[in-house]
Design a protein around this nucleic acid. Structure first.
Lengths: 230, 230
DNA sequence: ATGGGCTTGTGAACGCATTCTCAAACCCGA
DNA sequence: TCGGGTTTGAGAATGCGTTCACAAGCCCAT
């Protein structure tokens, strides 16, 4: 029943549930139904129940789920009962912003290293971290037990950064550079791409604009248009 | 055949194709097959053909697609033949990084305004833009014809920011704040959530670690384990 | 002009994820 | 202890997206 293979789509929602549940403990809520959790996380209740059922049977029929216990189970499933060290590769605007991001550590993630290949930047500081040489990436990753690499380089440098992270034994990478990068099968790669998100919004925005202009045209020629369909 | 409704999944991939195609023109490639484009975009060729077929029949059998023409068609479909003005709400580390982001404008997006509710920040500059008062959001949005709102506030302020953007007549929002926000049905909302991405990576990272330790254990107790199954 | 070699476009099959539905299980009050 | 009200957990149905497979169509060499 339990055991292997939580669907990807479910994994992607677990952090949402977790966040909602943490909010609830802060409001001293002890128990939550799938209906309530669904509302808080912005999904529907059947999905919540199915998702949680992949982790096990942690609810109580007629009652709901114990908030604390569910937080623990989801955290465990997501591997958040331990801390993870991250390395940021590429200290531009975005890399700097991420390095300063509070609430990064809130859920067990710690920026343990910043590297860049620009000699003008190496040796500089961001917060209480020093910017180190990209060439020392492997050594640094090993010393600090980095397990997650975050790429915030320009697009052209992204593949090189990924290659070095992989050769340093890292197999979880989050790529912010607007470029497709290739990694071996055993490496998890996720990407966040601002310009793609904007282009998707643009698509729907344009569609709305087109629809609106049709409506405007209809309103103007309303009677004529209607008269063509008696 | 053509007409309405390009599937969401396809819309999300069009920007990828577009990027690959633009790379190709820079390398003076005139024609591309679905196979080549698939390789460049990191998907498979059947998907490319199906996706492109939603836009129309722009390929030539036995030959492939004309790169320039395809760029034009995809750009048109995505609404990138016009410029879009964006407003960044919340000028913290991330907001500042986005405001400075070059290549933002590369594909027709322009940061037209920065607003924040912190009086200490208002009046300050980021690049050649002034930080303005959040309270003036509606007026600014109208004056500058902003159509996309980018929320980079703390989580607690995100819903308020969204509400104001909506009331300013904006119906495309990109949310970077780690919070669920509610918008009316006619508003497109996309979210980018760093901590969720990290938690997803953590899940798979943990799974790998668990698997590795099983392998290690097997190696140690290999013969004994095997002997239990004769 | 014809045939061979490619590549597109698309119907059909498949698979994964979501949603529906309801029996099983729990709590609580009488 | 029993019955009513509530909620989970999971089988079944549905829907969406991906992949397969191949006919249709194009180019080029002969």
């Amino acid at each position: 029943m339990k055991e292997n293979s939580v669907p990807e789509a479910t994994v992607a929602r677990l952090p949402l549930y977790l966040r909602s549940l943490v909010d609830m403990t802060e409001r001293a809520v002890a128990t939550v139904s799938s209906e309530q959790l669904a509302e808080a996380a912005g999904v529907n209740s059947a999905k919540v129940r199915k998702d949680l059922s992949y982790l096990g049977s942690y609810g109580t029929r007629g009652v709901g789920y114990d908030v604390e216990y569910l937080i623990y189970q989801i955290s465990r499933e997501l591997g958040l009962t331990q801390d993870w060290n991250c390395m940021i590769v590429g200290v531009g605007n975005l890399g700097r912003a991420l390095a300063n991001y509070r609430g990064f550590g809130s859920r067990g993630f710690r920026v343990a290293a910043l590297v860049d290949s620009d000699t003008a930047k190496i040796g500089g500081r961001v917060g209480d971290l020093e910017i180190e040489d990209f060439e020392d990436l492997e050594r640094i990753a090993k010393e600090r037990q980095v397990s997650i690499g975050i790429i915030t380089t320009p697009a052209a440098a992204a593949q090189g950064a990924a290659d070095r992270l992989v050769s340093a034994g890292i197999h979880s990478i989050l790529n912010f550079a607007p470029a497709l990068i290739q990694v071996p099968d055993d490496v998890s790669l996720r990407k966040v791409d601002l310009s793609i998100e904007l282009q998707i919004l643009s698509f729907y925005e344009q569609r709305k604009a087109a629809f609106d202009s049709v409506r405007r045209a209809r309103r103007l020629t309303g009677s004529a248009a209607r008269s063509t369909r008696p």
